[in-house]
């Protein structure tokens, strides 16, 4: 995009010749200070993860006593820990299963629980935004307020419903999906509603005048227009479920435990396997990052792209 050179504000005029290509590209970095601040933020936000990465490479015998940089200067860092964590059973919660099994469980838990709330949430969001009916506002507000019901308090009542005294799906994948879907509802409806309600109203009015039903509008207009919002919400729901421990621990079983379960046991176990916590935590980050990068382009239109006029 060819941007016409803007009038240079006074303070940059005083800065002698920094007309490099980079300076041109960064026209919004209006001063050295902004650049410096961006670099500092980027560094601050990255250093802990870098630290985690290097700590993952520290062999067990040094883990307790030496910092990773000491081990690095001595040339003793190794990638071995990743292999142990992934393919060797090291006595985690699942006793005979290497972490790879939990990693695959994480995928099986996460993917459906991203799809279900998106579909159900989008249906409701459309209804609350564009179908006028009595009490619509109040129900929507109620759903919004439910976001704050602490998950912990919902565990026991819901477990009674899903457990052996109820429909008996606790401990299986469907049980975990069901619980996650419920807990995702308030935020999904809230965020999707924000997006959909900002679609220009003439689109819907024109469709209604043409005699389109709500079902037809939903499939022909709402879904295609909501793709960027769905993609963004999908990322956040993915991250939330992927990183969840509590719901999976309560509604799952040894057959379904995701990555967070053995990691949490490792972290609480200061014994012989403590040095495997950093590599395990690092592995658990990789798939969410891949998901983020592959869906990142949707952010250009973004979750709230329509909201700028408000």
């Amino acid at each position: 995009m060819a941007t016409p050179a803007p009038a240079i504000p006074d303070e940059t005029k005083l800065t002698p010749k920094r007309k490099s290509k980079a300076a041109e590209a960064k026209e919004n970095l209006t001063s050295k200070w902004a650049t410096a601040a961006a670099i500092i933020i980027a560094a601050l936000w990255t250093i802990p993860t870098v630290g985690l990465f290097f700590t993952s490479l520290v062999p067990g015998e040094y883990y307790r006593t030496d910092a990773w940089w000491t081990v690095m200067f001595e040339g003793n860092l190794t990638f071995e820990n990743f292999g142990i964590v992934m393919f060797d059973s090291f006595g985690d919660s699942t006793s005979a299963q290497p972490l790879l099994g939990n990693l695959l469980n994480s995928i099986v838990v996460t993917v459906p629980t991203v799809v279900f709330p998106l579909v159900i949430g989008l249906m409701a969001a459309y209804a609350f935004a564009w179908i006028p009916f009595k009490g619509s506002d109040w129900i929507f507000v109620g759903i919004f307020a439910l976001q704050v019901v602490p998950l912990q308090l919902a565990l026991i009542p819901l477990l009674r419903i899903l457990g052996p005294e109820g429909i008996g799906i606790a401990g299986t994948f469907p049980g975990v999906w069901f619980a996650h879907t419920i807990f995702a509802m308030p935020l999904a409806v809230f965020l999707l509603h924000n997006f959909i309600s900002q679609i220009p109203s003439d689109i819907f009015e024109a469709a209604r005048v043409d005699g389109a039903s709500h079902t037809q509008i939903f499939f022909r207009i709402v879904i295609p227009l909501a793709v960027p919002a769905l993609a963004s919400l999908a990322i956040f729901q993915f991250l939330w479920v992927w990183n969840d421990l509590l719901v999976s621990a309560v509604f799952g079983s040894i057959d379904t435990y995701p990555l967070t379960y053995p990691i949490s046991n490792l972290a609480g176990d200061y014994g012989a396997t403590a040095y495997l916590t950093p590599p395990a935590a690092f592995i658990s980050m990789i798939i969410p990052l891949i998901v983020f990068f592959s869906l990142q382009r949707y952010f250009v239109r973004g979750l709230l792209a329509g909201s700028t006029k408000g």
Partner: peptide, 10 residues
């Protein structure tokens, strides 16, 4: 964005 990919426990 990277820290978003890490669980609270992690």
């Amino acid at each position: 964005f990277m820290p978003m990919a890490i669980s609270f426990v992690g």
